[in-house]
């Protein structure tokens, strides 16, 4: 298990809320800190990969367990 500095739970939320919530949380982090995002939105794997790349942060890891997607994003 990775350790995250903040956990953003967007389970049950629809597009565009997971990204919006993640953005808000990431804004509050310092460079090098890690955010964990939980989502049940089926589009979220593609969404988070694109978003992390474009905003020039780092997607450390993502996984799916029982329909819940987990993303670890490191703020660069």
């Amino acid at each position: 298990m990775r350790k995250a500095d903040i956990v953003v739970d967007t389970k049950g939320m629809a597009c565009p809320m997971p990204i919006v919530k993640a953005k808000k949380a990431l804004d509050g982090l310092a460079s090098g800190q890690v955010m964990e995002v939980l989502s049940t939105d089926k589009g979220s794997v593609n969404d988070f990969q694109a978003w992390v790349k474009q905003t020039k942060n780092e997607l450390l890891e993502h996984a799916e367990e029982n329909g819940v997607y987990k993303f670890y994003v490191k703020k660069v």
């Binding site: 597009c15 565009p16 990204i19 919006v20 993640a22 953005k23 978003w51 474009q54 905003t55």
Partner: peptide, 11 residues
């Protein structure tokens, strides 16, 4: 508005 909010989350 969904696209606008998404773009805002893209900074």
């Amino acid at each position: 508005f969904i696209i606008a909010n998404g773009a805002a989350a893209y900074d």
